[in-house]
Amino acid sequence: MSGEHAGLLGVLIAVLGGAIRVGTPFLFVSLGECLTEKSGRINLGLEGNLVMGAMSGYAISYLSGSAWLGVLAAGLAGALLGALHALLCQQRNVNDIAVGIALMLFGTGLAFFLGKAFIQPTAPRLPAIALGGWSGSPVVRAALEINVLFVIGALLAPAMGWFFRNARWGLMVRTVGESTDAALAMGLDVNRVRFFSTVAGGFLAGVGGSFLSLYYPGSWNEGLSSGQGLMAVALVIFARWNPVSCFYASLLFGGAAALGPALQSVGITWGYYLFNAAPYVLTLLIMIATSSSRRTLTGMPGAFTR
């Protein structure tokens, strides 16, 4: 009886820990996408930024010996891809969705090509804060190792919400995303605002990638990402373009992804692959439940409704 109890608690704690571990890359990519979409442009290529960030973060961490330099390099790689997206999209008659898909393939392909040499070596990893020291259970302790990047992301979400509300630049990003006409009437350079939003969004997605290779799972290989970059785009819609909601949505998706491994860790092995599909099923269910054919989504930037 008490063993079962410990098992259930163990699953809950493992899911919570997994939510934080698996959710962190979601968090960074979705915050990046949120920023880009608020400016009225969709960057579907963030999966490419993520994988590219994972590779360059791991490589620089290995070459320099500093995991934090790796994170910076990952962000810069993501920012470069973002800049490429922005520059392509501001040409005439260029569709941001098509460019995004092309850059997703380009980013992952480039990362695989450049990252061949870094599959074997071991790079310094990012440090974690052990919050589980009070517990004697190794499961609990492992689950409550919180990475510093997660803490940064958790602070970044409300900060971005504040930025959209209270900063001149934040209002400029939103104005450009809501109404090009209004932005032009205010004398804003629409392409410039979108360029910086896409670059900053790309930077965040790259940082999210470095979490994959430098913390969890914590090594570089070609199967590192399982589409987190793409799912994060859906997650932004689910979060209604609200950064703080992006934080909760990332935790929810992370937790769903951690369900299979958590159940396995307490000995429930049936349905492992079924539980692994939980985030995808969740994506579908949430989209169906929260969408309506009669009205547009609340919070959707005006640039997408035309």
């Binding site: 209270n166 001149r168 630049w169 209002l171 104005t175 205010m186 930037p301």
Partner: peptide, 21 residues
């Protein structure tokens, strides 16, 4: 701008905005 509040719309119309509002 339909997704913004009345106050935001009125403030945005000002010729120059401070960095922090």
């Amino acid at each position: 701008i339909p997704n913004m509040s009345v106050a935001e719309n009125l403030v945005l119309a000002r010729p120059c905005l401070p960095a922090r509002i």
